[in-house]
Amino acid sequence: MSAYNFAYLDEQTKRMIRRAILKGLAIPGYQVPFASREMPMPYGWGTGGVQVSAAVLTPDDTFKVIDQGADDTTNAVSIRRFFETTAGVAVTEATTEASVIQTRHRIPEQDLRCDQILVYQVPIPEPLRFLEPSEVETRKMHSLEEYGLMHVKLYEDISQHGDIATAYAYPVKVEGRYVMDPSPIPKFDNPKLEMAGIQLFGAGREQRIYAIPPYTQVVSLDFEDYPFQPTKADHACDLCGADDSYLDELIMDDAGGRMFMCSDTDYCSTRRKQGHVGAQGAPLAEDAA
């Protein structure tokens, strides 16, 4: 433990990252370049998110990591253990108890408070990337607010699929100015981007940090005749019975057996502790046995 500086990164690096974060917060949705460091994990595993977490963590923080909503996946477990080792911070699986939450692909179902920070891992921060390969050109488009191209993507969706088929990484416009990639969260989570907590986005390989301050207007792009619709599986959670949470579909056997369950494991288990039971769920005590 003492072999590492607090939260792995050296103080100068954390300072550099904090400056980028502050700039990002000052210009909501703007991608701030930063000198991303090599981290002891491969690119694509959350190197951006880890650096942002390292820069914002203090010894008093309680840290939570989720991957696709779950606390117990490899990625979440190893990042959580990483900061347990290098920062010695308290860790938790409970959304309400955490002060810093690093996430990949989900926003917790539980509303965040203003004393909580949500850190996203971002693979490709540039929403225009797949339409315009040149970074020089996309930066110019951002600075001149030329966002017609973003709608071309949505147009293509409708013309090919009859509806806006983009289901994740759905582009949003932040505070009426910058078009932003909300990281690959399902579009079900897009309305939650207007929240009380601070949201920080870190892209390690692409060396960009951006942010949404609390209570910032975040509008999902759409057409007048094809308005934005957050979607989820038309089902209730089979374990806890929640009908308002984002669901994972699980194949149970070769005979077509399947079940839907909350992708947010903490939300699901909290509900089950409160006594909610879904269609295929057993009461909590028996389930544990």
Binding site: G148, E156, S159, E224
Partner: peptide, 19 residues
């Protein structure tokens, strides 16, 4: 991008928002 999208791009660039 499809032919329709190609033609529509300039319209969307000047804020046409009705599919």
């Amino acid at each position: 991008v499809s032919a329709g999208g190609n033609v529509g791009e300039r319209l969307m660039a000047v804020n046409a928002r009705h599919y």
